[in-house]
């Protein structure tokens, strides 16, 4: 049987390429912006940090979607479904490589931003200080007993869980559609998929509202119990969706016919 490590290695390569393409796009955008600012405003007025943080805001979303598409393809390709590995191992390797590739993209971008802040010197530090002050006074004022480090850890964990949860949800919708469509006549697939799209949009709207409520509830009173219960809820939700995904892969979802 193929080990988890080897499964991760073979699933990693295509996703690593995607992350590198996105970083290349980011690099090109930064260079393009530098040149444009240099010509229009003068080379001495360039603030590298402003450019590295300002450009390519949408790249994170594109990377997220591209990785999701690649991940969903992997679940239904003969090449991968034939691997002599359990469905649980295969699924987890898929999730780990997707998260890993995204993390790689984010970390490299943050490093570039950090380096550019160092290069930009005092002006950037002043800018950063200004924005932190805006965030502090205009946004969250009171962190209660938790402290700002606790809040930072909570937000980081919550964002990570939201990202993994979103990929897991995409997979769940994909695999469920795939599995359920085999029970319908071939001619009714479009109607079914149309209905499913409506249901999915409905669920996403409801989920969005719920997340806003959750944010309001947490920011109203920062405390350990609220944060732990929210994180726990998310963890349980993600793990439950993952379990359903593995079940679907094992018993119902077929590889695509060539």
């Amino acid at each position: 049987m193929t080990t988890f490590r080897r499964t991760v290695r073979v699933l990693w390569r295509p996703k690593w390429r995607i992350a590198n393409w996105m970083l290349l796009a980011y690099g090109l955008l930064v260079v393009g912006n530098l040149v444009q600012t240099g010509f229009s405003e003068g080379w001495f007025r360039i603030n590298l940090m402003n450019i590295t943080t300002g450009v390519g805001v949408g790249l994170g979303v594109i990377a997220f979607v591209w990785l999701a598409v690649r991940t969903e393809h992997d679940w239904v390709q003969d090449t991968y479904r034939l691997l002599p590995v359990t469905n649980t191992r295969f699924y987890l390797a898929g999730v780990v490589t997707t998260v890993g590739a995204y993390l790689y993209f984010v970390v490299v971008r943050l490093l570039v931003m950090g380096l550019s802040a160092l290069v930009s010197g005092q002006q950037s530090a002043a800018n950063l200080n200004h924005w932190l002050r805006v965030a502090w006074t205009g946004g969250v004022r009171e962190f209660g007993t938790v402290g700002w480090l606790g809040v930072l850890a909570f937000v980081a964990l919550l964002v990570s869980l939201l990202i993994v949860g979103a990929w897991t949800l995409i997979t769940l919708v994909h695999l469920l559609t795939n599995a359920l469509s085999t029970f319908l006549p071939a001619g009714r697939q479009r109607i079914f998929k149309g209905l499913l799209a409506i249901v999915v949009v409905g669920v996403l709207v409801w989920l969005g509202k719920w997340l806003v409520q959750l944010r309001d509830w947490v920011t109203a009173a920062w405390n350990d119990a609220a944060m732990v219960s929210i994180l726990g809820m998310f963890v349980i939700g993600v793990v439950a969706m993952m379990a359903v995904n593995v079940y679907l892969l094992k018993f119902w979802v077929e590889a695509r016919v060539r």
Binding site: D78, R81, L82, A179, F251, W252, V253, E254, A255, V257
Partner: peptide, 10 residues
């Protein structure tokens, strides 16, 4: 063949 190879399910 796909059923034997575990590519087809259900």
């Amino acid at each position: 063949m796909r059923l034997i190879a575990d590519l087809a399910k259900g």
